[in-house]
């Protein structure tokens, strides 16, 4: 990460201003990219929570599975970044499918505490099994050359990877918006969210809708886990470490709301990044303080629906 205001002792005020601008820009781009990673992973969680009313603490575990698969493909098999993303997402969905069929279906509509317990249990299992097979070390996902180069965007340069992540985030948001607002599937999905029993009665096969939505959510988690590995390193306790982060984002944004999740990700990404730049020792402190303040002020999240 470039420029932390280290040159602040420069003689001229003009130079100081330039440094200040540069620091601000660095923080802004990092915060935006980080927020986008959070968004890609959390939006799936937000959807499952809004649609199926399942507090899915195992969401981070699916992101972790995606990261592990991608790391295995790029480092051990030596394949490229694109196949790693595609196979990582597909593989995670395939692994997650039995979970949905066998376990998650049993806790739809159950009390939150039971959902929390079962999904924490799944998370523990995933951590234990992954580490049994892949060992307790940090997994890197090497970027292709094209993403490691800095890109000149006119007034300054940014790492291409940051741009790529931002573009992915915007793309995911647009695609989801289109899927939910403009397609037949989206209509069924929204109907099932509003009144599952009535939708069922009208002939929509809600279990299929649920399964597809779940697959989309898990796929997004894996996608975010892979391309966000620069921000949230893939390591054994990934699923537990960032589980809290994803939950926080969704509850701050309001479950089921794309806009809410987007705003929450950008806001929390900004708080976190600014905290890390300006007060590296107390970064997390401010993050959690902000979370408490926001949830206290908006108990239903920014754009949550009344239950």
């Amino acid at each position: 990460m470039p420029g932390c205001g280290c040159e602040a002792a420069s003689p001229t005020a003009l130079h100081g201003l330039a440094v200040f601008m540069q620091t601000t820009l660095s923080i802004a781009t990092d915060a935006f990219a980080y927020g986008m990673v959070l968004f890609i992973i959390s939006i799936g969680l937000s959807l499952t929570m809004g649609l199926m009313r399942v507090v899915n603490l195992a969401h981070g575990a699916f992101a972790m599975i995606g990261g592990y698969i991608a790391s295995y493909i790029t480092r051990d098999l030596g394949w490229g970044y694109v196949p790693a993303i595609l196979l990582g997402v597909a593989g995670t969905i395939i692994i997650a499918a039995p979970f949905e069929r066998l376990l998650f279906r049993r806790i739809y509509g159950k009390p939150e505490l039971l959902q929390v317990l079962m999904t924490i249990g799944i998370t523990f299992c995933v951590i234990g099994v992954t580490n049994y097979f892949f060992g307790p070390t940090l997994k890197t996902i090497p970027l292709p050359d094209i993403l490691t180069r800095p890109v000149d965007i006119g007034f300054r340069t940014i790492a291409a990877h940051r741009l790529f992540v931002m573009a992915c985030g915007v793309g995911v948001a647009a695609a989801l918006w289109f899927l939910i607002e403009k397609t037949g599937f989206g209509i069924k999905l929204r109907a099932a969210v509003d009144n599952a029993a009535m939708t069922d009665a009208l002939g929509v096969r809600t279990p299929v809708v649920y399964a597809i939505a779940f697959a989309v959510a898990v796929g997004l988690a894996a996608f975010g886990g892979i391309i966000g590995a620069e921000f949230l390193p893939v390591e054994p306790y990934y699923a537990l470490r960032y589980m809290v982060l994803f939950l926080v984002v969704v509850s701050v944004g309001g479950a089921g709301s794309i806009l809410g999740t987007l705003v929450a990700c950008l806001a929390l990404g900004a708080v976190d990044t600014v905290g890390r730049y300006l007060m590296p020792d107390f970064g997390n402190f401010f993050f959690y303080a902000a979370v408490i303040a926001i949830v206290f002020a908006f108990p239903r999240g920014f754009f949550g629906r009344a239950q």
């Binding site: 929390v116 949830v295 239903r300 239950q307």
Partner: peptide, 20 residues
């Protein structure tokens, strides 16, 4: 102040804040 998920998240945030 909150219910359900938000309550759970508050409890997590509080313990993490204390930990930090």
């Amino acid at each position: 102040r909150a219910h359900g998920l938000a309550q759970l998240v508050l409890s997590i945030a509080i313990v993490q804040l204390g930990h930090e």
